[in-house]
Every structure is written in C-alpha cells, then in structure tokens.
Design a protein around this nucleic acid. Sequence first.
DNA 1: TTGTAGGCGTTATCAA
DNA 2: TTGATAACGCCTACAA
Lengths: 341, 341
Amino acid sequence: MCDIAQQLGISVSTVSKAMKGSYDVSQATQKRVMELVRKLDYEPNRHAQSLYHKRSYTIGVVVPELDNNFFGAIIRGMENIAYKKGYNLMICQSSESTDRELSDIRNLINNQVDGLVLALASETEDLRYLEKLLKRGFPIVLIDRGNEELSAPQILVDDFGGAVEATEHLIRSGCQRLAHLAGPPQLYNAQKRQEGFEETCRKHSLPQYTTRHCAFNMEDSFQAARQLLEENESIDGVFAASDRIAIGAMTAAKEMGKKIPEDISIIGFSDLKYSKLLEPSLTTLAQPAVEMGKKAIQELLQHIEDENRPEPKKYVFKTKLVIRKSTRSCPVPSDVPELTS
Amino acid sequence: MCDIAQQLGISVSTVSKAMKGSYDVSQATQKRVMELVRKLDYEPNRHAQSLYHKRSYTIGVVVPELDNNFFGAIIRGMENIAYKKGYNLMICQSSESTDRELSDIRNLINNQVDGLVLALASETEDLRYLEKLLKRGFPIVLIDRGNEELSAPQILVDDFGGAVEATEHLIRSGCQRLAHLAGPPQLYNAQKRQEGFEETCRKHSLPQYTTRHCAFNMEDSFQAARQLLEENESIDGVFAASDRIAIGAMTAAKEMGKKIPEDISIIGFSDLKYSKLLEPSLTTLAQPAVEMGKKAIQELLQHIEDENRPEPKKYVFKTKLVIRKSTRSCPVPSDVPELTS
DNA sequence: TTGTAGGCGTTATCAA
DNA sequence: TTGATAACGCCTACAA
C-alpha cells in the first residue's frame, strides 16, 4: 500500500479509501489506484486488518480426522458458506487425540480465530478449557460429536432415531437375535445409538440382544465381532455403530463361514463412499454431512456477528436408511406405521 | 499483554521480555508475569507478532481433495514437521477446480503465509500466477502433482517406475494382452504412468496393448473400462492409473461376467485404505505419502529460512508393489533381475 | 477531495 | 533490571 501511494504520489489513506470503493475519492485517483493494484497483484495484509478490526475473519475447525468421507463432506459444507461470507477456515485434525485437540484449539485461539467449529475426539472428557472460552463469550459450535454439559450450539445427527430405524429394519427383515457393535462408551453419539438399539429390541420383545463396545476402526471391531459371534452362535443380525465397524464385522462373519445376509444381516452407520463397493454392499444410514457443515457455519457466524446471542440450540439432522445387500430384503416397504406410535 | 502489565504495575515491554524468557528480567518479575499469564490463559496475538516480524509462521497448503487417504497421509506428514518447528498449516481443498485453486492461493497469500505446498488440480495449465510468485522469490513446493516448467522444488512419486513395476507384474503373472486405464492426459503423473506402461509393453514385445484415458473417479472409469473391454474381448490384464479407476474397472469386468483374476488381472495405483477390502482385494502400488509430506515441509522451511536459496530439486519417492488377489499369483518372486538392465 | 494522526498488539533498540 | 519509543500495515475520524 505504501508502494502504491509512493508510486502515485498520494497518501496511503487515499489508497486505502480508493480500495474500499465507497468513500470520498475522485473517480480519477480511484481508477489510477485500482489499475496499479491489479498490475502489482496487490492484496492488503490481513494481519494488519485483523489487528485493526479485532477480527480475523477466520474460523477454526478441529475434526478427528480429515481423510474421512463424513468429515470431508462436513468441511465442504463449511467452506461453501464461509468463503461466500468472506471468512477463511483454518482446519486441524486431532487424530482422535485429546491432547492434540487441546493444543490445536489453543493454537487456533492465539491465531485469533473468530470462532470454532469442533467435532470432539472420542475420548475427550475434560471440557474445562472449552467452558472457560464459552464463559468469556467466545463463539463455539459443536458438530456431530455432541455433549450434554457444554452450553454451545450443537449440530447433531439423530443417532437415536437412526439406530431405531436400523434396528427396525433388521427386525422387519426377519432377524430375531440381534447384536450391537457399539462405539466408544464415552462418546455421546455411540451412547445414543446404543440406546436406540436397546430400546427398539425391548419394544419388540426380542428374545435375545447383546451390545459390545469397540473402537471406530476395523481391527478392533473385527476382534470384537469375532468374539461376539463365537460366544453367540445364533446371532442373525448385527447393527454396527459405524461403517468401519460394520466392515470389521463382515470380515469376521465371512471368516467364520457365515453368509451375508442369508445367515446374518449386517447394517452400518455413515455411508462411507466405499461401503457400496463391499461384497455384499453394505446397508447403512446416510448422514447429511454437507448440510450439517453449512448449518454449523451459519450458526457460528450468527454468534460472531450478532450482538444479542440467542440460547444455544441443538439442530438434529435426520439420517436416511440406504438399503443394500448386506441385509435380507424386507417383505414390507420401509415405512411401518404401527411402530411410530 | 496490556492487561498483564497493568495488573502487575509494570510496562508491556517488560512483560514481553519476561514471556520470551531469555532476556534481562529479574527472576521475581519473570515469575509474577508467568503466573498471571497462566492464570489468564494468555497467549500473544499472532497477528501482531506476524506484523512485526513480517513472518506469519503459517504455511499454506492446497490439495485437490481432503477426504482422500493419499492427501490425508501427506497432510499428516506435513503437520508432523510443521508443528514441531512452530509453524501452522492453513489447509485448503481445490476440489480439482483450477479456479478454486487460484482463489485459494491468492487468499493464502493475502493471509501472509510464509510459503506454499501445492498439489495442483488435474486441469491446471495456466501457471502464470505461480510463476510470478516464484520470480518474486516466494517459497513454493509442489507435491505429487509435478510440473516440468515450474522452477520450484518438487516432491514426486516415481510414477514411471511404479508403472513399469505394475506392468511387469502383470506380464510376469501371465497376462499377454494389456490395457492401461490412464488418468487425465494433462496430468504429469498420469503421463508418466502411461509412459511406464507403454515402454514396458514395447520392451516385452507384447502382441497387443491399449491405453484409454478417464478421470480419477469410479463413474468415469467404469464407463471407460466397459467400452474398453467390450471392444477388446481378449484383454487379460488392466493397469489402472489409480485405485479408484481400478475399482471402476473391477465393477465393469464383473458386470461382464469376467472372473478376477482368472479371466483378467487388475492392478491399481495408490493403495487406498479400502482397496484391501474389495472382492477380490486389489493389487496396487503404495506411495510413501507421510514421508512425502514431511519432505515437502522440510524443503519448504529450508527455502523460507535460508538466505541463499539452492537450485530447486526434485525428490522422487519409490512406490512399493502390494500384491493381493486381483492379479494372478506369480511363478517368480517379485524381483526380476534381467529386467533391471 | 485529500492528507494527518493515532491506534490495533507485539517486539527490539536504546536510554534510564 | 526496567521502561519509553518506534515500527510493522491498515483503517478511520478529523483536519485541511
């Protein structure tokens, strides 16, 4: 900006005004400035702007994992809205590590981000730092990984409802002895999915149902599934808390010589891009990730830009059952009126 | 910092020095300052620091796609080094769009990043802006997606060598009529893979080999593969330029009633996380993505921090053949001395 | 219509 | 050992 002012023999403030447009600057200088700006590929220093405005126009994002369809899609949704509104994203991955998550958040804060969108790592339990931030009035939105205690807006999936739908689907397709491979027990989502499963089993008075926890990865779920199936030979339907867990279960079932879905039906949660390519293709619950990402940013921007902050709301997005080949085909189409009571 | 100075009744400059540690500050004040800093969770404003130092300690990263194992691993490698050295990453995804890529880069530049690591979008051809930046001495490192014209350091995969290895493997396992499903023709990597394939076919005087281009996605490659296989019934081996293309080819082959690998062998490139779960599991070439990410940042930091810039080098990482079930088992183990001449 | 001046938060130099 | 000061680049209220 100094360069430009010097080269044109005018003051920096005039240049600044010219670049903003809507200011009292003569057409002539305006034009001269803009031409030189373009010629020099000049762009104002955002850090100086940020210093003056006390706003960085940057939003911090921490997700457990980047190379993951679900979070990938969430980020696409967030970028969509953020860029349109002149905000940048600063994206970090915690790799499901609570320590890393905390250091990412601190780092984003000292990078002066205007707000945070967080999908908490599965083991995160110590929320004191976040609570401090919230108390100071710092804008935070949680996405996907909710938390009952934190008074921040939350963008969630209807984990309970999805679990009910999945379980109903298994029952409808003739399964009688169900098992649930649940996610990490500390994780809010995992809890809700488990509740949905168990409540549905009770409602239908199933003679037998079990739940076993495992991590959200294929190795752990493979072990868990194998144990489960060995201990309970009669299990004929598995609701897995994620697609990756479902893949582990499929591998275990196949290894034991069980046919999917003839001997055992398996259903996942998330609809990974590759789930339809499995053999057999995986029945699962799709989540509207892009929409969730958009909503998260919209909500956050409202908190950033509005003076009077509303009560933190929860937005719960519905899942969608995607029926493929890993569950037996149903006699009845997917709506079952007598169950919605 | 002002707060702290006021509360302790000392000057800001003393606080600043105390926080830096290695300065002439009395032990007593040093301690008082640090205690208050901790109590207030105080962190210095990086934008002010950046303004003063003319360094943001932030590196801009643009990759075509985030939810992709390969780029995900590259980013993990980059984070590893960058965080250790006190740098942050600002990550963007171009979604393979040249326009978006350019606007990401401009945005990163005006966010004052100290350097860029770029994996160019496949259609990018207009490199004028990047050339301008390089001419100004701005540090840029290209990763994975190389470019002959740009005089920037490049972190590449031995696409040619990998393609040779893949093709040799097909030939060794008894395939005689090979086809290559190549990536976008503008893409440097795709060109090298194609060259490796064709040169190897020539070297072995194969009676028949064909190449067909398609995009790096399953839909497009499915169509391309189907056409290819319909037009050339006798093809018994396919080298796909990426795992996703390989998946498209597998789907097409299966649909036509061909057995993999009995009737046709298929080999991919990249080793996606899900490739080993396919039916049959996919033989492919693994790339050392994490190492590449590390190298990219190391190289960039050298350019950022060193006065005398060395000539831009190319680092070529070797691929590793991962043999699974989508190719027929070889009579000979994987080293074939007579071919290395 | 244009320019001057002060401040945003930090740091390094120099003076006290 | 401490503090005042100027500077980094930008912006706006106010003066010219």
